[in-house]
Each structure stands twice: as C-alpha cells, then as structure tokens.
Amino acid sequence: MNHLAVSMCGLSLAVAALANPAVAQEDPAKKTQTAKTFWGVSAEKFEYRYSDSDEELAVVEGDAYYGTDELKFRWLFEGEWEEAHNAWETLENQFVAQTPVDDFWDAKAGVRIDTPEGPDRVYGVLGLTGLAPYWFEVDTNLYVSDEGDASVDFEAEYELLVTNFWIMSASFESLVAFSEDREIGVGKGLNSTEVGLRLSYDLIDRSFAPYLGVVHERKYGDTADLARDSGGSTEDWFAVVGARLSF
C-alpha cells in the first residue's frame, strides 16, 4: 500500500501549506489575477432501476467539492432508495480532503458515515482517485469501520465516444472485506460486483445528460449467504433510466 503512504504524506503537506499562508503573500496581484478556489456539484448517477425480479430502486451517486488545485474538500453521497420498503437500502456520506499526488492521481482521506435502514457505521477512509492510462477513471478506497472491520472498494469507468454527444460508459465496482460484519450483511472476502453499461446523450452542455442502461449486481460467498438468509437476492439485472448532472 505504497500509495496510501504517499497520499497521507501528500495530504499532510497540503494541510500544512494551507495552515501557513506565508508563501509570497506580498504580491496583491496574486489575488486579483488568478482564480484559485473552485467548486462543483455533480451526480454521476441519478437514476431509477427496475430489476428482473420487479424490484424498484432510486439510486443517486454524486459529490460536491470546494477547494484549490492543491486541496479540495469533497462530500460524496451515495444512496439507494428501495421502493418496496420505503427505506434507504444504502445511504453513505463521505467527507474527504483530496490532494494531488501525481499528474493524474489524487489521494483522499476522511470519514464515511453510513446511515441506511438498519445499523449505522462510521469509517475512516483513505483513497486514491484519478485517471489511469488509456482513459480509465479509477477510484479506490480503504475503509476501517468503528467496529474495527476493514474493506476495500474499487471502481473503474470508461467512456466510449459513440459521437461527441452520445457517450457509452462502462463501469465496474467491487467490494472486498477483510473481516466479517454480519450486522450489515458483509462477509469476508469478495462481497459484490456491479457492472453497468449506460448510453447517455449530452443534452445541455455537460450539465444534463439523460441515459438508459443496464446494471448487473452480484453478491459472492458469505455475503451472498447473508443476503439469502435475510430474504434478499444475490444476483439482479436492472434496467436503468436516469441522467448525469453537473453544475
């Protein structure tokens, strides 16, 4: 986990830099002539899912950030609203600080607070996000929960330009746990994978891009057993309709 060491190091450096604004402050034009802080709000997923077993889910996955090139504060939000139970099956809020560690990679550190239907969890997060060669967008995080359980998630996305407005995006997500957390249905080892394929059209700039797609979710091993025990499914196909949003 060399990356993590690097990211921790980078992060502390950035925080130190922020706490010490002495760098060449005497030149007022640095304030007037450059744009330093930026913000953005986007939802990569804002969709409705219909499963082959007639399950219906509303899913939103987005983030908001504020910060500079060197240090950003980011709020990441992920929720799955289950129509049948009128409840959040998943509800995660992450608050992380993010800093570059390489031309294409950022390290992240912060907390994740899960408050879905059922038991809550708080995690410490260390992550790495960026652009891998051949234009794969990658995001991976190590989580350690307040119960002492550790897990790692990995997400990759690739966008294929059918045209400059029609975009086919392929995504892959997986979760691996290093220990079991029975209460929240997490088994040891590979928990789950989610593979998605979405065809979107940039209707208004890149602010509003409606899409249609399919998503395949699967649970594995102990996690699958836990799901079965609680009456849930272990493998689902979804048709999805939604939009990518960005402001």
């Binding site: 744009a35 930026f38 913000w39 953005g40 986007s42 090139d69 294929l160 330009l161 059918v162 045209t163 400059n164 407005f165 700039d205 890149r206 960005s246």
Partner: peptide, 22 residues
C-alpha cells in the same frame, strides 16, 4: 467564471471534437 470552473472540473468540458468510435 463558469468556463473556468467547468474547465477545472473537466478539462475537456468544451471539447466536442474528440475522436470517436466512428
């Protein structure tokens, strides 16, 4: 301001001449 922010969010935000599958 909006252009600057969009470019920071995604450097290719305004690039509609990217090479496609076609």
């Amino acid at each position: 301001d909006r252009i600057m922010r969009n470019l920071k969010m995604s450097a290719d935000y305004y690039n509609r001449q990217q090479q496609t599958v076609g």
